[in-house]
Design a protein around this nucleic acid. Structure first.
Lengths: 344, 344
DNA sequence: GGCACAATTCAAAGCGCTTTGGAGGAACTG
DNA sequence: CAGTTCCTCCAAAGCGCTTTGAATTGTGCC
């Protein structure tokens, strides 16, 4: 069943049927009702290829996932995609996923742009100074960055959380509890978010004149064994940390495991604060959750990022959309007073 | 730059240019060279939307990922996608990913089919008797199943490994080493692959008249904590197992961690055999790998599955393509003689 | 009654490419 | 040399939809 057949059936022109279906105002209400009813009854579904050719819009959003040979699609990313996917389906957009070797990332964006495969892309995991900003600008491909690079004013759209401030507060919270030896188990610090978190951590230490110790600072891919190994090694130091500030709940679980293995009680002998992306399979909810955490839902971020991008594409308005989310500090059972007394 | 402009530039018809570009034989070699050169020089790239409308082919393959609220996109799936993605890019196909709530899965396939969004789909995680086989048949959407259900002769295409035989052999190997209390840490047994593995395990026990013990059999999502918990609990049984047969290397790592925590030496005090999907970030390679394993690369399976599906779509030939891969039993350091002596 | 104007509807022209059905020669055949 | 055949190339007709520009009808106003 195609538009032409349907219009013949209704004794209407294809124009009118098309307009009725697409909600244009210049169609008599009664006529529209007839058209809609007939379309439903005969199971008419517009051919998307034809629509796309005629309108010039791809009705799809691209995501490029560059993967080094040993790299994995990590669950945090997957959770973001889950959220974005919800928005897309609701808006009738498709999600085009391009999984490519690291060195083909630019090519992937170029292909999407040149072939008009997508109306826009979401850019993941920005670095300190991300070259994709300029590249996508040149390609003329609308994009929204999840996170931002060091030039957030450089004229692009992004959604990010206040990583620096969140880790500043989290560190301050631990200092307030009397901790002085606070370890940082960070994400990979070439990534902007991790770098900002580190900056927040260092700022907080500096604000209280607590010396930073490189032996207590790590950067790595956010997987469970990383947390486990880091804690075991740091606890074996001559002057071990009394608190850990951790970048992801997966890592925190590894840390917790190590703490328990050492016969220590989390929240009493050692404190842990983690960032909590609210991964749906690792709930840290409830009135007194397992972990004290800086919390912000990554799935919600995915949903909202997709919305912002679609708005950017479809709605006239500001050239760039920016949204800074505030991660909330939630007090859980994994923190307690440190050696310096404290208690503010 | 569009086809028409290019053809005007060359003083040729659009027909000829199109044919030259698409490799049709009825074009003079010299003319073709001219066309190709001009296309490159002027940066001509065909509009995919127009191509798709004209040919009726979507040049895209769909993957539907149904997710329960708490479910994750697991790394094994991600690795498969990685492989499939390679094939698609090489063949000029796009990957359309539809992430939907569990109860919307059918709808997602229907939408893809009705709108001609894709030329085919890959079906993941078949159950025992998978309803998608019939549904996709009715939709007329070509598909390839990664795995198979209980009716592999039911007239569809699939790629699978010999799960049952592999676990039969692995169990036999442990029995041969003298183990009698062999635990099974399986995947979710509503899934076909897990059910087959269980069947292989039970067959092997029965073949040697070893009683099966439900207390030693688990089914669960294949994550690291599952292996850890299961081992700790089973080792606390009055008559604990001396060997573990495990469904994934992520789970095996959890198991190994638990074994070590208990002060036991893997391969001496307790044996572990795992299935190894060759996840790129958890290498179990080398002449004497960490784990004794039934090994088959899931990324290669992704690559090949995509190839088979593309062949199914594009090449005339058998109506259904089936490929059964043999997982190889690799002896590593995690297994050793059991209490009954043994040593075959 | 006649004119301006709004409300509906339509025919036709794209969107940019593929493909069908020939056409015009050159080369070959008897 | 006429009749075939092959090699190249082309004009035009789609693919199924949207959108422009215009026609038709109905309504309000003086």
């Amino acid at each position: 069943m195609k538009l032409k057949e349907l219009s013949k059936l209704l004794n209407l022109s294809a124009t009118t049927v098309s307009r009725a279906l697409n909600g244009y105002p210049e169609v008599n209400a009664e006529t529209r009702a007839r058209v809609l009813a007939a379309a439903r009854r005969h199971g008419y579904v517009p051919n998307q290829m034809a629509q796309r050719l005629a309108t010039g819009r791809a009705m799809a959003i691209g995501h490029v996932v560059p993967l080094a040979p040993h790299q994995i699609i990590n669950p945090i990313f997957a959770e973001f995609m889950h959220g974005a996917g919800e928005t897309y389906s609701a808006a009738g957009y498709d999600m085009l996923l391009s999984i490519v070797p690291e060195d083909r990332e630019n090519e992937a964006y170029a292909t999407m742009a040149r072939h008009n495969k997508v109306d826009g892309v979401i850019v993941h995991g920005p670095g300190r100074h991300d070259p994709r900003v300029d590249m996508l600008g040149e390609l003329g491909l609308p994009f929204l960055m999840h996170g931002r690079d060091d030039r957030p004013e450089h004229g692009y759209s992004w959604l990010d959380i206040n990583n620096r401030q969140a880790f500043f507060e989290a560190t301050g919270f631990l200092l307030g509890l009397g901790h002085r030896r606070i370890a940082l188990l960070n994400g990979i610090e070439t990534m902007n978010f991790a770098w900002r978190r580190r900056a927040g951590y260092l700022d907080a230490l500096a604000a209280r004149d607590v010396a930073m110790d490189p032996a207590l600072m790590r950067s790595g891919e956010m997987v469970e064994p990383y947390g486990h190994a880091a804690v075991r090694e740091m606890m074996a130091l001559p002057d071990p940390p009394t608190a850990f500030l951790v970048s992801a709940i997966t890592v925190a679980l590894g840390a917790l495991r190590a703490v328990r293995e050492l016969g220590l009680e989390p929240g009493r002998d050692v404190s842990i604060v983690t960032h909590d992306d609210e991964l749906s399979f690792l709930s840290n909810a409830g009135p007194r959750p397992l972990f004290t955490a800086t919390r912000s839902s990554i799935r919600a971020a995915g949903r909202r990022s997709a919305e912002l991008l679609l708005a950017l594409i479809n709605e006239p308005g500001p050239a760039h959309r920016r949204e800074l989310w505030r991660a909330e500090l939630v007090i859980g059972r994994s923190t307690g007073p440190g050696p310096e007394g404290g208690g503010d």
